[in-house]
């Protein structure tokens, strides 16, 4: 059992949990994730480690309500115990000797991008962060990301803060201004990552995306997380989650992530009835 030592809501529907998991905290690296199961009847879901503390033996995750399990995470309280946490899984993000890195995060992707921003900076790269959300209340971790960035650009879909528009607009402007960018790291909704990858392709800038396929075990055993990279099948959990954005078959990922739409709806309706 894994004790929740801290629980906060960063924004409506965005929950931060700090959880005791000493073995994982010892060796967590940026870009890696855990598989989390709330209780005996729960689903195993992947969540990126937003932070970790080897001394305290804790890992921090930030979850956006997407369906039943992430909604239920919202009801978990400080002191509660979670059934299972496995990790650190996946390959860590490559951060060495990159030069100037543009880190682009959209929505919950901002939380996922934070440890990467920090690792990129600590590895000696110049970090340009671009963060976007629907509205200003959903702009999380701004302070933390600013701390490890050389520049921070903000945008909102509704114009309530920063640039009124998309993260891709800002990146495009930078590229058009011929700012030296060696690598783009993008994480967020699939469609955002696709837009960024399509954009950078025409500028010939290397782009890494962090994919979020549906997983079951997270250890390479089932193939639920299959993605297509450059025509070859890869497992998101063990070969990723980071991949070359220019080689990802996003259409396939979009289709595969809709596999259980009907069932997910049933689960959410049942959950809402239970908490009501």
């Amino acid at each position: 059992m894994y004790k929740v030592v801290e629980k906060r809501d960063l924004a409506p529907g965005i929950h931060l949990l700090e959880i005791e998991a000493p073995m994982i905290a010892q060796r967590a690296k940026a870009g890696q994730f855990i598989m989390l199961m709330i209780d005996d009847k729960g689903e195993r879901i992947p969540l990126t480690m937003a932070d970790w503390n080897p001394k305290k033996g804790t890992v921090t995750i930030i979850a956006l309500e997407a369906g039943k399990t992430t909604m239920k995470l919202g009801t978990v309280k400080k002191g509660d115990e979670l059934r299972s946490i496995v990790g650190p899984l996946g390959i860590e993000t490559h951060t060495q000797d990159l030069g100037t890195v543009a880190c682009v995060g959209g929505g919950i992707g901002i939380a996922l991008m934070y440890p990467t921003v920090r690792a990129m900076k600590q590895a000696g790269n110049k970090v340009l962060s671009i963060m976007g959300a629907r509205t200003k209340d959903l702009l999380i971790l701004e302070k933390e990301i600013t701390e490890y960035s050389d520049e921070v650009h903000i945008c909102t879909d509704d114009g309530s803060k920063g640039h009124h528009g998309f993260v891709s607009d800002i990146l495009k402007k930078m590229l058009d201004e011929k700012r030296p960018i060696d690598v783009v790291y993008a994480v967020g909704p699939i469609i955002m990552m696709k837009v960024i990858a399509d954009l950078t392709r025409s500028y010939g800038v290397k782009t890494i995306v962090s994919l979020n396929p549906i997983m079951v075990d997270g250890t390479g055993m089932c193939g639920s997380c299959r993605v297509n990279i450059d025509g070859k099948t890869k497992f998101g959990c063990v070969d990723g989650p980071d991949f070359d954005g220019h080689k990802v078959d996003f259409q396939l990922l979009i289709a595969r992530n809709k596999r259980y739409l009907a069932e997910e709806k049933t689960a959410v309706e049942k959950f809402k009835k239970e908490v009501a």
């Binding site: 009847k41 729960g42 689903e43 195993r44 039943k68 399990t69 079951v216 075990d217 055993m221 089932c222 193939g223 639920s224 596999r259 259980y260 069932e263 997910e264 049933t266 689960a267 049942k270």
Partner: peptide
């Protein structure tokens, strides 16, 4: 492995009492 893990380990045959789906 996926089909059987969903069904057996995750008990999808008792969905939605258990959370893991299996089409």
């Amino acid at each position: 492995n996926e089909f059987l893990t969903r069904t057996n380990l995750m008990k999808s045959y008792m969905f939605p009492e258990f959370d893991t789906p299996n089409r």
